[in-house]
Amino acid sequence: MVKVKRRRAVISRDIYVACGSCEDVCPKGAARVIRGSYAEADASLCIGCGRCEMVCPAGAITMEVAE
C-alpha cells in the first residue's frame, strides 16, 4: 500500500511579524495570530495546502512532513 505523506505548516516564532496574512487565507482556520505576537498552525486542522506559506512576507512558514 502507498503511504501518503501529510504536509503541515510550521510557523517560526522568531521571524514572524504578525501581519495576519496567513490567517486571512487559511481555508481551515488553522493559522491564527496569537495576541499580536506570533502565529500558530493548528496541526489537527491544517490540511497542508500551503496557502499561508505563499503569502507570508517574512518567510516564517515552512511546510513540513507531518510525523
Binding site: 511579524v17 504578525a18 501581519c19 496574512s21 499580536g36 505576537s37 505563499m54 503569502v55 507570508c56 512576507p57 517574512a58
Partner: peptide
C-alpha cells in the same frame, strides 16, 4: 516580492508587535 512584504519591515507593525 510578496504582496505584503512591506509588513515585514513596517515601523508601525514592528512597534505594535
Amino acid at each position: 516580492y510578496k504582496p505584503r512584504s512591506w509588513c515585514a519591515v513596517c515601523p508601525m507593525g514592528t512597534m505594535t508587535q
